[in-house]
């Protein structure tokens, strides 16, 4: 199976129904994407398929063929991705960090599709990414900060 991950053409010898999460983690050694629940309810495994956020634990690898997969390891490849990462660092969002790859990927997808999100937009877009440390207050602030950041 040939996949385009973070702009790189990669090959993995996996069955088409293997969840993308395990292809990324176990076969492509991209461990930034995390397993949280395996049923698409926690958001820790969020990656982008052609720019849209998906739960990698529920996405069969075959569905990613022919699409651009973006993971947390490639988040810094775009200006908006870098802006989100910078805002996350500046506002000290992270506590344990385990859910944050997913949070950041959802945040980037939100800002890509809605460059000036309101707090309500943020709540709607981020509702599927849970954080047990409850860093939500700072996640909201960091998304607003990243959206307001100059592009470049």
């Amino acid at each position: 199976m040939k996949l385009n991950v973070n702009g790189q053409a990669l090959a993995a010898n996996v069955p088409g129904d293997m969840p993308l999460l395990w292809v990324l983690r176990d076969h492509l050694n991209l461990t930034g994407t995390k397993y949280g629940c395996g049923i698409g309810q926690c958001g820790a495994c969020t990656v982008h398929l052609d720019g849209a956020p998906v739960r990698a634990c529920l996405t069969p690898a075959a569905e990613a063929v022919g699409k651009k997969v973006l993971t947390i390891e490639g988040a810094a490849d775009t200006p908006r991705g870098r802006a989100v990462q910078a805002a996350w660092e500046k506002l000290n969002v992270v506590q344990c960090g385990y859910c944050q790859s997913g949070q950041i990927m959802s945040a980037i997808a939100l800002i890509e599709s809605n460059p000036v999100p309101t707090e309500l937009d943020i709540d709607a877009a981020m509702a599927g990414n849970i954080c047990r440390c409850a860093t939500y207050q700072r996640i909201r602030a960091a998304i607003l900060e990243a959206a307001a950041a100059p592009r470049g």
Binding site: G32, I72, E73, A75, W88, E89, N92, V94
Partner: peptide, 11 residues
Amino acid sequence: PHESAPLHVSG
């Protein structure tokens, strides 16, 4: 910042 912050945000 948290000592792991750059690692946390980059996977």
